[in-house]
């Protein structure tokens, strides 16, 4: 029998108890559509993916149980390892780089001037650019002979690579492209910075004449919850990068598989070769890797994330 926490006391007046029960019933009722959604579109598909990964399950015909064959097949496929390596490199470089840049920008934005609103708007705008449109624009921007980026880099006396045709540089195209929309991360950091109590900040100013002391010992520890948030979201997102990779490298990861990302290989398997079993096996592997990383971060978070009200 559903009993709300408000109805525990037996001495409560009758009317109030009934009200609590009504509330509990309403609570379940209002959450019912979502519980249904959670079951149909998350819980069941999650289990089914594991099942499909062990079946020969092509679009037509009944599924056949094949045990670990699909996993063996993807592990024997060089494209799997190439794309896994690329995706890992992409995540390892772009996530920390984005966090550092976003934090830097947030620190710069954290002061009141006549132009503050303008700056904030400018840094948020790239987030609104559809990934497909942004990627196409970057192909032009990074054109070696007529793109403004290389022109300016050459003007500074550098020798920029041919971003889109040089296999060693192509991954950096995706990294740059992914750094551009850092508005959300920046605003999350800025929110954290603005929540730092003024007296703490001023005490730190008085305490040490060096600005970076305050940054390392006061500011960064106080915004570790935001760092954790951005880190976890960033990792989950980067391992699934798709649209940008598909626009830049197509389904073959041009040039020379340098931009071949995990999700692109998975997409190729499922919707070009209609090999649902192997695609599901890839999905399971990605899921386990991301889950492991997320758990690892949350586990270590206890030692580096500061929560207000912690008695330490």
């Amino acid at each position: 029998m559903p009993v709300g926490p408000t109805t525990v006391g037996a001495a409560m007046p009758r009317r109030k108890r009934r009200a609590g029960q009504g509330e509990a019933r309403a609570g379940v009722l209002f959450a019912l559509p979502w519980m249904l959604g959670l079951t149909i579109f998350t819980a069941i598909p999650l289990l089914l993916t594991f099942f499909i990964a062990q079946s020969k399950f092509q679009i037509t015909g009944p599924p056949k149980w094949v045990g670990m064959q699909n996993y063996e097949a993807i592990f024997a496929d060089p494209a799997f390892w190439t794309s896994a390596g690329n995706t890992f490199m992409f995540a390892v470089i772009s996530v920390p780089l984005k966090l550092v840049l976003a934090l830097g920008l947030a620190l710069l934005l954290n002061r009141v001037t006549a132009l503050s609103g303008f700056y904030r708007t400018v840094f948020y705008l790239p987030f609104l650019m559809p990934a497909v449109a942004g990627s196409i624009v970057f192909i032009l921007l990074l054109n070696p002979s007529a793109g403004p980026v290389n022109l300016m880099l050459e003007g500074m006396g550098l020798h920029p690579p041919d971003w889109l045709r040089d296999p060693r540089a192509a991954l950096w195209t995706l990294i740059l492209l992914n750094l551009w929309p850092l508005g959300v991360e920046t605003l999350v950091f800025l929110g954290g910075l603005q929540n730092i109590p003024k007296d703490v900040s001023e005490a730190a100013d008085l305490d040490s004449p060096k600005g970076w002391h305050k940054l390392v010992w006061i500011t960064i520890p106080l915004i570790t919850p935001m760092i954790l948030f951005n880190l976890v979201i960033g990792i989950i997102y980067s391992f699934q990068i798709f649209a940008q990779a598909l626009v830049i490298g197509g389904t073959t990861g041009k040039p020379a598989e340098a931009t071949l990302m995990y999700m692109v290989v998975l997409y190729r398997l499922a919707f070009r070769y209609f090999n649902m079993g192997q695609a599901a096996a890839m999905a399971v592997v990605l899921f386990l890797v991301v889950l492991l990383l997320t758990l690892l971060i949350f586990r270590t978070a206890r030692s580096w994330v500061y929560y207000e009200g912690d008695s330490r």
Partner: peptide, 9 residues
């Protein structure tokens, strides 16, 4: 939860 692990089914 990464959506990749649910979209196939």
């Amino acid at each position: 939860l990464p959506s990749v692990v649910t979209f196939l089914p």
